[in-house]
Design a protein around this nucleic acid. Structure first.
Lengths: 221, 221
DNA sequence: CAAGTGCACTTGTTAGACAATACTAGGGTC
DNA sequence: GACCCTAGTATTGTCTAACAAGTGCACTTG
């Protein structure tokens, strides 16, 4: 099962490919990734594979303790809540500030029209534009470190998306409407309203995901 | 100049020691750190030194491009503004939420009494308790990811502290007072007031630092 | 003096090896 | 038959040695 990668920086390419395979769910949560195994799959030396694994651990997509083999991170209900609260803290303040100047990010508007267009499609088709919407909001602040922080959070969000079994628990139309409400409050120059709209939007998604993960075989077993 | 380190994990120990020396200013901003040099100083192999350097690059304390030697990060006025805005985004929402439940973090109170006690001392004595104060606020949210994000920001703050020449531009008493005001607004259950107090506090520090860095020989040279 | 060339330095990556630690299975004992 | 202890195996941590490739500087040359 030898996989080829473009020679950018070998380790970068491996990181990118592994990340993709984790996002796709090819590498399910809890999957063990030994250094030798990774090295073999990509035909590279073990130190190279090691470096790639360590980068993904730093990105919170893998986890491992000293002398233990790395595993694809397991996300339980508590972890999901933690992630979404963190998102909420960053994003609600962001939309608050955007609303203060009534700055509606064009990229966010665009992303939501894309979401509206995909309402009839399966929920998985919404993942990308949904993330694009939220990223656009944060990036509109023009603050590199805030964007970087948020991006690392989204990596974990993306990870737990693959774990959600019944994607249909997410109501496409409702998502589009909630996004529209957030944009509306920003446009109206209503910081409190924007923050409130965003908070309920994230809280809604959070509890649906958390409930779903509670039922399915948790990270414990 | 061979430095000894406790045998925890060799690379962890090196990372910790380098970080300390950067914070202390022993390794001034812009200092080049070649892999061979680090390896020699700690009597370890080059791959080990390489790993340590890469960890510090990930922590944003060092920076380096492909095939170029790592240097202690230079922080200019724009970088400081970016950092402080990011801090402000996280912290103001945090205090907002703390105020919503009138939850005054005991650790923050303690840290500020320490600051009050050190008002007569030189400003450098305030760095530690000041960071402790802000960290306590964020940690009071009980959100691991938010705390982690904030900690990475503080690493850079700490870094730029060593670069500020005339520390006396920071008025100790004013810092203590502004902290007290934040705690007061939280205690009063006044989210907007707390957020506003925190925002002005950080904006004040930010502009003083930025102005100072503008004058001193910038990151360019 | 300007521009091109070449060398020294540094990083990227590999190979192979050994020590130390964690997991697993087997055997012995109660 | 159940449990503990031990040995073996797999895996990671670190090292040495080496070569290729890229960067920057100094030097030469026009």
């Amino acid at each position: 099962m030898s996989r080829r990668v473009i020679p950018l920086s070998i380790i970068d390419a491996i990181v990118a490919d592994l990340r993709l395979r984790i996002y796709e769910g090819v590498l399910a949560q809890g999957t063990a990734l030994t250094e030798a195994e990774v090295a073999g799959n990509y035909d590279v030396a073990r130190p190279t594979a090691k470096a790639a694994i360590e980068r993904l651990v730093a990105d919170a997509l893998l986890e491992r303790g000293a002398h233990k083999t790395a595993r694809v991170k397991m996300l339980g209900a508590e972890a999901v809540r933690d992630i979404y609260v963190a998102r909420s803290i960053v994003e609600s303040e962001v939309v608050r500030r955007l609303a203060a100047t009534a700055t509606v990010p064009p990229a966010a508007v665009l992303a939501n029209t894309e979401i509206v267009a995909r309402i009839p499609q399966p929920a998985t088709a919404l993942i990308a534009p949904d993330m694009e919407f939220h990223t656009a909001l944060v990036d509109a602040m023009g603050n590199t470190r805030t964007s970087a922080m948020y991006r690392s959070l989204l990596g974990e969000v993306r990870l737990c998306m693959t774990r959600v079994q019944s994607m249909e628990l997410l109501d496409n139309k409702r998502i589009a409407d909630e996004h529209a409400a957030i944009l509306d409050r920003i446009r109206a120059g209503d910081p409190d309203g924007a923050a409130r709209a965003l908070d309920t939007h994230l809280a809604h998604a959070r509890e649906l995901l958390a409930a779903d993960l509670q039922h399915s075989p948790g990270p414990g077993f």
